[in-house]
Design a protein around this nucleic acid. Structure first.
Length: 812
DNA sequence: GTCTATCAGAGGGTC
DNA sequence: TCTGATAGAC
C-alpha cells in the first residue's frame, strides 16, 4: 500500500529492509529492537518525516519522547533537514520537558501556581536538609541524600507518601518525611523532576476530559531509549495511549494513538536510577504488540569489535536476543594492554595517542572511557604533562555553577517570593551579616505562621534587627523595578543590586565567576524573544556555538534550513490554553535553566582527546576507543559484584563501551592502582574471559626498555607517588613473570633483580591459591621464618593477612 | 558571624 | 588522595 511512496520518496532511500519496515510501519503498536550503531535515530526521525509527508498525521499529532535534550535536539535538527515542517508544533522533547509544558498549560488543574518553579537535584537536596532541620530529624539515621533517593524512588514508582507500603519503623518515618516534603514543596510553589512526571501522570489519570483530549490528539507516540524508562514514565505513556488504568477500567473504548518504542535491552545501564528494562516485555504484552523489528545490522564498527561485543553480551541470561552484524569485514584486532600501574597505563595511553595522531587520527576521534570518574585524574595528569589537548565530559554544568545558582535564586525570588530554597541560598550571600541565629528564628516564625520565609520577615525584623528587613526590602524593591524591563535588564539589575557582582569583583579568585555571570547575561540575551513576548513571538536560546539564533515568525515551518532553537519554549510562551495567560520572559528563562543545565563542555569543537565515563559515552562513537581500568572491582565495579543483576548491568555497560568504537579498540588494565590514597592490587577484569580470543591481540612488553618506560619506578611521577615504597618496582616486574601465558608476547618476560629472596618462595604479585579463600594475589610480605606473613588479595574474599607457617598456599 | 581544622566518605548521573 | 560538610575557635 505504501510501496509506491516507499520507492518514490527520497526520504526512504538507502534504508535497509529492516529500517524501511520500521519507518513505514502501519499505524499500530510496535517495538523496535535497535542494536548499537544500527541507525536508530535515523529510523525514528525518518518515520516522523514519512508520517508527515504521506499526510498520515499533522505535526500536532506527533509525540516523540527522548531522555536527553541533546537527543531531542538532534531529532529536530534531522527532521527539519528532511522536510519543511514546523517542528515547533510537534511535541518533541524530553519526558520532563514535555511534562513541564503540559503542567504549564494546565497549572490550575494540576493545583500549581502559574509561576511554579523547578528544583534541580541540588535544590531538592537542600530543601530536604532544611526540612530535616526544621523537624529535628536525626541525620545519622536518615541522611538527607538517602531521603532524597527514597523520595525520588517513590515518585519514579508513581507512589505518593500515602501509597508507601510501611513494613518497618524506618519506612514509616521516611514516608512521613516524604509527606512533609510534599507539603513544603506545595507551599513554596516548587516541583522537583520526579514531581513534574508524577503530577502530569496524575492529572491525566484523574481528569477524563484532559486525558481524552490528549489521547485524541497524539496519533503517533514514539519513544526513544525505551529500555531506560521507569515505571512512572511507562504508566504515563500508557495513559496517553489510552492503555492506562482508566482505560482498562473501561468507560468507553479509548481512542489513543499508536506507540512505537525503540530500545535496546542490551544497552540498559540505568537501573540504578529507576529504569526498568522489564518495560519492554510489559509493553509487548500489555499493548499486544504484533510488530517487532530487530535492527541488527551495524554501520559503525568492524567485525572484531562486534564479535567481542556479541560474545560478551551473550553471557547475560535475560535478553530479548539480538546479534550485531556488519559487512565491513573484521578490521583490526582488539588490542589488549596490561600495565604495571595506573601511572604506567596513563603513560602508555599518552604514547599510543601520540602515535595515533602521528598516523593521522584526529584527537577528537580518540576516546578514553573509564568506569568511574576518579579514574580520569591520572589520565588527565599524563595528558597535561605531555601537552596533549583533552576534554573531560561530566562535572559541573553551566547552570549548576554556584555563582549562576546564586544569580538564579535572586531571579526566582522575583517571580516567586515563597521559594524558600532560593531564599535560603542567598539570604546571606553575599555576606550581609545574617547568621544562623537570625535564620533559625525566622524559620521558627515562618513555621508557626505557616508562611514563607519572605513573609515571616516582617514579623521578625522588629526585634531581630534590620539586616533581614533590609534584605527583604531590597528584594521587594528589585521586584517592583522589573516590570517593563527586558530580561537582560532584569538580570543586570539583579546582579548589581544583589551585590553579587561587587562580591566577585573583590574576590581575587572571582574573575572566572564574574565571567560566568556575564555569560548568564549573554545567555538570557540570546534567549530573548525578538518581536515581543507572548503573542506570535518565538523565544530562542543560544545554539551550541553560543550564537543567537534568529527566526522570524514568517519563516516558521517553511524554511528547513532555518536554525533551530529550543523545542520546549515556543509553546510555553504561547497563551495558556485555559486562561490565556502567558509566561513572562523571566519565568521562561528560569524554566529553561532548570530543564537544561547547559553545556559542560567548555572547549567543544576543539580537536581534543575525549575523556568520559562509559555511562556518558552512550550514544556517541569514535574511531579509536580506549577502555581503561578493566580490573575486577573497578570494571565490573565492586559494588555490583555481589548480586547477579549487578554484574549483568556491568556487562551491558561493557557492551556499550565496546560498541562505541568504529575502527580500533583498546582494552587496558593495570596490576596496581591508586584508589582513595591507597595502592590497590587488582586482578584483570573477568570480562576478558568472556571475549573471543580470536578477536584479541595482546600487546606486551618486548624488552627491558619497555619495562623501564612503563614500570613504576621510572619517570618523574610514579616513584614519588608510590605508597608501597620499593614494593612497586618489585611488584611490577614480578607480575610480568607470573602472569599466565597469553601468546607469544610473554615469551621474553622481564625478570626483576630479586632482593634477598625469602625461604617460602613467595613474591609480591604472585598468584596463589588457598583451599578456603581461593585465588588471590600476594600484595605484601613481612617477617621471615615462622613469623613470615603475607597480605593476599583474594578475588572472592578480599584482602587478608595470612601466617605462612599455617596457611596452605600454592603458587598458581 | 566568619574562618579554619578535622573527619568521613568516595558509582554510574538525565531532567 | 581529594572533596565536602560540620564543629569549634577567633
Amino acid at each position: 500500500m505504501f510501496s509506491e511512496v516507499a520507492s518514490s520518496s527520497p526520504l526512504l532511500r538507502n534504508l535497509n529492509p529492516e529500517q524501511l519496515a520500521a519507518v513505514t510501519l502501519p499505524n499500530t503498536h510496535a517495538l523496535i529492537l535497535a542494536g548499537a550503531g544500527s541507525g536508530k535515530t535515523r529510523v525514528l526521525t525518518t518515520r516522523i518525516a514519512w508520517l508527515l509527508q504521506t499526510g498520515q498525521v499533522s505535526p500536532g499529532g506527533i509525540l516523540a519522547v527522548t531522555f536527553t535534550n541533546k537527543a531531542a535536539k538532534e531529532m529536530m535538527v534531522r527532521l527539519s533537514s528532511m522536510l519543511p515542517v514546523n517542528v515547533r508544533g510537534m511535541w518533541i522533547g524530553t519526558f520532563h520537558g514535555l511534562c513541564n509544558r503540559f503542567l504549564r498549560a494546565h497549572y490550575k488543574l494540576a493545583n500549581l501556581p502559574s509561576t511554579f518553579q523547578i528544583l534541580d537535584t541540588q535544590d531538592q537536596l537542600s530543601a530536604i536538609k532544611r526540612l530535616c532541620k526544621q523537624f529535628n530529624i536525626d541525620d545519622e539515621r536518615f541522611p538527607p541524600k538517602q531521603l532524597m533517593w527514597f523520595i525520588a524512588g517513590c515518585k519514579e514508582d508513581g507512589q505518593r507518601a500515602k501509597d508507601v507500603v510501611v513494613r518497618d519503623e524506618e519506612t514509616r518515618k521516611k514516608a512521613e518525611i516524604y509527606a512533609l516534603y510534599e507539603e513544603q514543596c506545595q507551599r513554596e510553589g516548587v516541583v522537583d523532576f520526579g514531581e513534574l512526571m508524577l503530577r502530569s501522570y496524575e492529572l491525566l489519570r484523574d481528569n477524563a476530559p484532559v486525558r481524552e483530549h490528549y489521547q485524541r490528539r497524539f496519533r503517533h507516540i514514539l519513544i526513544d531509549e525505551f529500555q531506560d524508562t521507569n515505571k512512572l514514565q511507562y504508566a504515563w505513556i500508557k495513559m496517553l495511549a489510552g492503555q492506562g488504568d482508566a482505560a482498562a477500567a473501561g468507560t468507553h473504548a479509548m481512542p489513543g494513538g499508536s506507540v512505537v518504542a525503540v530500545g535496546d535491552d542490551d544497552q540498559s545501564i540505568y537501573a540504578f536510577r529507576g529504569a526498568r528494562v522489564g518495560n519492554m516485555a510489559d509493553f509487548v504484552r500489555e499493548f499486544d504488540v504484533q510488530q517487532q523489528i530487530k535492527l541488527e545490522r551495524n554501520y559503525r564498527s568492524f567485525g572484531n569489535i562486534l564479535d567481542s561485543a556479541n560474545e560478551l553480551i551473550s553471557h547475560n541470561s535475560k535478553r530479548l536476543g539480538k546479534n550485531l552484524r556488519t559487512e565491513a569485514g573484521p578490521g583490526e584486532p582488539v588490542r589488549v594492554f596490561e600495565a604495571t600501574s595506573d601511572f604506567a597505563e596513563a603513560q602508555w595511553f599518552v604514547d599510543e595517542v601520540r602515535q595515533l595522531v602521528r598516523d593521522g587520527t584526529e584527537r577528537k576521534e580518540i576516546a578514553l572511557l573509564y568506569r568511574s570518574n576518579a579514574q580520569s585524574r591520572v589520565m588527565e595528569t599524563a595528558l597535561f604533562n605531555n601537552a596533549i589537548p583533552y576534554r573531560v565530559y561530566g562535572g559541573l554544568r553551566f547552570f549548576e555553577r554556584a555563582e549562576i545558582k546564586h544569580a538564579l535564586a535572586y531571579l526566582r525570588l522575583m517571580d516567586n517570593p515563597h521559594d524558600d530554597t532560593s531564599f535560603m541560598r542567598i539570604v546571606n550571600f553575599p555576606p550581609r551579616g545574617i547568621g544562623m541565629r537570625s535564620i533559625e528564628q525566622l524559620q521558627d516564625v515562618a513555621r508557626a505562621a505557616g508562611c514563607s520565609l519572605h513573609d515571616a520577615v516582617s514579623a521578625v525584623s522588629g526585634k531581630a534587627g534590620t539586616n533581614l528587613g533590609a534584605f527583604v526590602a531590597k528584594l521587594d524593591v528589585l521586584r517592583e523595578q522589573t516590570p517593563g524591563l527586558s530580561l537582560r535588564e532584569i538580570i543586570e539589575l539583579v546582579l548589581q543590586h544583589s551585590g553579587l557582582e561587587e562580591h566577585y569583583k573583590l574576590d581575587k579568585e572571582g574573575q572566572d565567576r564574574l565571567e560566568n555571570l556575564g555569560e548568564l547575561v549573554n545567555a538570557a540575551e540570546s534567549f530573548v524573544s525578538l518581536e515581543g513576548f507572548g503573542r506570535d513571538a518565538v523565544a530562542l536560546p543560544i545554539d551550541e556555538l553560543g550564537v543567537a539564533l534568529r527566526q522570524s515568525p514568517a519563516s516558521q515551518g517553511l524554511d528547513p534550513s532555518a536554525p533551530l532553537g529550543n523545542e520546549l519554549l515556543p509553546e510555553l510562551l504561547a497563551p495558556n490554553q485555559e486562561t490565556g495567560e502567558t509566561l513572562s520572559p523571566l519565568a521562561a528563562f528560569l524554566t529553561h535553566a532548570a530543564l537544561e543545565s547547559g553545556d559542560n563542555q567548555a572547549q567543544a569543537g576543539q580537536d581534543a582527546v575525549q575523556l568520559m565515563t562509559v555511562h556518558s559515552s552512550k550514544g556517541l562513537e569514535f574511531d579509536c576507543v580506549f577502555i581503561s581500568g578493566l580490573e575486577d572491582g573497578i570494571f565490573p565495579h565492586e559494588n555490583s559484584l555481589s548480586d547477579a543483576g549487578g554484574i549483568e548491568e556491568e556487562r551491558r555497560l561493557m557492551y556499550v563501551a565496546i560498541t562505541r568504537a568504529r575502527k580500533r579498540l583498546y582494552l587496558t588494565h593495570s596490576q596496581t592502582r591508586m584508589l582513595h590514597g591507597q595502592t590497590r592490587y587488582n586482578l584483570k577484569s573477568r570480562f576478558f574471559d568472556e571475549l573471543p580470543e580470536a578477536a584479541l591481540k595482546w600487546i606486551t612488553p618486548k624488552n627491558r626498555g619497555f619495562a623501564q618506560a612503563y614500570g613504576g619506578n621510572s619517570g618523574t611521577w610514579g616513584a614519588s607517588n608510590s605508597g608501597a615504597g620499593g614494593a612497586r618496582g618489585d611488584w611490577a616486574a614480578a607480575a610480568f613473570a607470573s602472569r599466565k601465558p597469553v601468546g607469544e608476547t610473554f615469551a621474553n618476560p622481564v625478570v626483576p633483580p630479586q632482593r634477598n629472596a625469602p625461604a617460602h618462595g613467595l613474591k609480591t604479585g604472585m598468584e596463589v591459591f588457598h583451599a578456603k579463600f581461593g585465588e588471590g594475589r600476594v600484595m605484601m610480605l613481612e617477617g621471615s621464618g615462622d613469623d613470615a606473613r603475607a597480605q593476599i588479595n583474594f578475588t572472592r574474599h578480599g584482602v587478608k593477612w595470612l601466617a605462612l607457617s599455617v596457611a596452605k598456599l600454592t603458587v598458581v
